[in-house]
């Protein structure tokens, strides 16, 4: 139990630092940035106190907002995916989730990919919807969400593959 708290705290801090110091400065093709920090929400233990989890996600988003001066857009997006995460888990892992035996490191690649993609796309659509805050720019929002999602998903999978085996 203690181990889980330590590793999640560490992941929280490291992901925020990596996000604000490195990834926020990528600007691939001018506007595409990966948002790797949602990996914290993706990899949070399945057996959890749901309220605490939602609150932690809010805190994560708010910290990113503080660093990038974006009001509350990251917080809103993070809270939303924290809230829909159980549904996404149920959809992708089915019975395994019901028995609380999901392990991301050993799960099938395809179901992992679906699970990450669902959360990432929801996160990015809410993020850019609130960031641009103008429905007449819907094409811009979808374009940004799509390309950033692809970037984020690739980076998340790579991170899980590289750092996942040790644990």
């Amino acid at each position: 139990m203690n181990n889980a708290i330590t590793s999640n705290t560490l992941r929280f801090i490291v992901l925020i630092l990596v996000q604000v110091l490195v990834l926020n400065n990528i600007h691939f093709l001018g506007y595409i940035n990966p948002y790797l920090y949602i990996l914290f929400i993706i990899l949070y233990p399945i057996k959890n106190n749901r309220s605490l989890f939602i609150f932690l996600s809010f805190l994560l988003g708010l910290t990113i907002d503080m660093f990038s001066d974006s009001g509350g857009v990251h917080a809103a997006a993070c809270v939303s995916i924290a809230f829909v995460r159980p549904a996404a888990l149920k959809f992708t892992f089915g019975a395994m989730y019901d028995h609380q035996t999901v392990k991301f490191a050993t799960a099938e690649f395809v179901s992992n990919l679906t699970y990450i993609s669902i959360l990432t796309v929801i996160h990015h659509v809410i993020l850019f919807l609130l960031e641009v805050f103008n429905t007449s720019e819907i094409i811009l929002i979808l374009k940004k969400a799509l390309f950033s999602s692809i970037f984020t998903i690739i980076l998340c999978i790579l991170t899980i593959i590289i750092f996942g085996k040790r644990k």
Binding site: G61, G71, G72, V73, A75, V79, S80, L130
Partner: peptide, 8 residues
């Protein structure tokens, strides 16, 4: 969510 939308 409403707190963050308020901030936004």
């Amino acid at each position: 969510f409403s707190v963050s939308v308020f901030f936004t």
